[in-house]
Design a protein around this nucleic acid. Structure first.
Length: 428
RNA sequence: CGGGGUAUAGUGUAACGGCUAACAUACAUGAUUCGGGUUCAUGUGAUUCUGGGUUCGAAUCCCAGUACCCCGACCA
């Protein structure tokens, strides 16, 4: 994509009403646009990041046999009355139309997925089942805050698993723990993210949260560094410590952001809707459920929060909006020509490239923008790069520098293609 | 929902109760410059959040509402 065509622009100054780092950089970079407290629109750059995050999660969900669906956001009031949550859930958005009919705006989808399944499954042979979706959720947060970290409309992956035995559930629950760890690892925050023992909230007795260490987090967790076991402050008591074999004095307190969670739902939602199956001996049993959430928008905010420096974002390669940021400096004919050639070649090789082809923009401004946008690899073409740096033996070409590096080096187009797409570099 | 704060051009800010609401940035035009947000000129851009009140006169003072931010409560 040519940056000159991109309708968004970077801002030098951060918005007055945003304090959090994630909102500041995402807005300044033009990734998102704030509509109201806790509600954001995704602009081209932010949308690309979101899709990358989505695809990683989708891959991992499909790997364990997940079936993707897209359920409605409007949800029948009756379903919510059946589970007692029409009155019981404080942050449920209730909307009504001109006829006075009331519906819920989905904050979660147990009330939808269970009745759907009731239409299709009734035998033990139909199980287990793993249904998931990636969708906007609505929750009337009393206080939306911290940019993308606590929203009223946000994007979430929610998976629901259905089982005929406790054992079968346990096996899958364990498997999902590893899947989740892998997801956060793939997004570059694995080293900062801890599976955390937590309370079950209104759903079940226990749950596991995935907490990413960050001073801007609103959760407090305790970590046993030696074993890597963590627990949430809400279950920080002698009984739980004993269960987990932890010594209070060895635990270190941290602030953290909850980027995902997994729950044992037991029959909490299958029962009200009588989601049951007939077993091999003709007996009827209620289905067991688990649920597994990841907040994608929150994840995006978290990654900016923890992977950034004073100049801007440092995206991990896996979710960066582009693989390489190609900067054209100056207006010399041969520089222009060379930059266009490199741009075309990268595109031809299916490398996602943002080409800063803007004319009349100073090098300093392009560098500052590049740092703010945070694409992991920067490639500069200028009269200087074509001549080669004084201390570089490779001669002239393209100056590449990782976002995390201080100094770059000059490489040829072929080298760059080899670096970015080793298997197809011979097509130059 | 309790406490605190803020609301002026797309963005960031200024303006004693008194002149045509100023500056920076962004944008447009033309020069200039070209390796870390160049320099200059000209120009476009505002119902000062909304409604009421006080006053000869309100961006400014008062009241109410709304929105946003922060702290708290709340949060599968």
């Amino acid at each position: 994509m040519r940056q000159s065509y991109l309708f968004t622009k970077t801002k030098k100054e951060s918005p007055a009403d945003e304090v959090s780092r994630n909102a500041e950089f995402l807005i300044r970079g033009g990734f998102v646009h704030k509509e109201m407290a806790g509600v954001y629109s995704y602009l081209p750059l932010g949308f690309r990041v979101l899709k990358k995050i989505e695809n990683i999660i989708r891959e991992e969900m499909d790997k364990v046999g997940g079936q993707e669906v897209l359920m409605s956001s409007f949800q029948p009031k009756e379903n919510w009355e059946k589970t007692g949550r029409w009155e019981g859930m404080d942050d449920l958005y209730k909307v009504s139309d001109s006829s006075g009919r009331e519906v819920a705006l989905g904050p979660t989808h147990e009330e939808i997925v269970v009745p759907i399944l009731k239409n299709y499954v009734s035998s033990h042979k139909d199980f287990p089942l793993y249904i998931y979706q990636i969708q906007n959720k609505f929750r009337m947060e009393l206080r939306a805050k911290s940019g993308m970290l606590r929203g009223r409309e946000f994007i979430m992956k929610d998976m629901y698993s259905f089982h005929t035995s406790k054992e079968d559930f346990e096996v899958f629950y364990q498997k999902m723990q590893d899947v989740y760890k892998n997801i956060f690892k793939r997004m570059g925050i694995g080293h900062l993210t801890y599976m955390t023992f937590a309370s079950g909230g209104t759903f079940a007795k226990y749950s596991h949260e995935f907490q990413t260490l960050s001073s801007s987090g609103e959760d407090t967790i305790y970590i046993d560094e030696a074993s890597g076991i963590a627990l949430n402050k809400e279950v920080f008591n002698d009984e739980v410590l004993g269960q987990l074999n932890l010594v209070k004095e060895k635990l270190v307190e941290h602030k953290s952001i909850e980027v995902g969670n997994i729950f044992d739902l037991k029959t909490k939602y299958s029962k009200p809707f009588d989601l049951s199956y007939t077993g091999p001996k003709g007996e009827k049993n209620v289905v067991l459920m688990g649920c597994y959430g990841i907040g994608l928008s929150r994840l995006m905010g978290t990654i900016v929060e923890v992977l950034s420096d004073d100049k801007g974002i440092i995206w991990p390669e896996s979710i960066s909006p582009f693989t390489v940021h190609l900067l054209l400096l100056g207006e010399d004919e041969d520089v222009l020509k060379e930059a266009e050639k490199v741009y075309e070649n990268l595109q031809k090789n299916n490398i996602e490239v943002l080409f800063d082809d803007r004319q009349g923009v100073s090098p300093g401004e392009k560098f500052a923008d590049s740092d703010l946008l945070g694409i992991p690899l920067r490639a500069v073409i200028s009269s200087r790069s074509l001549k080669g740096l004084p201390d570089n033996e490779a001669g002239g070409g393209i100056e590449i520098k990782r976002r995390t590096e201080e100094k770059g080096k000059i490489v040829s187009l072929k080298d760059l293609l080899t670096l970015l797409a080793p298997s197809i570099s011979d097509r130059v």
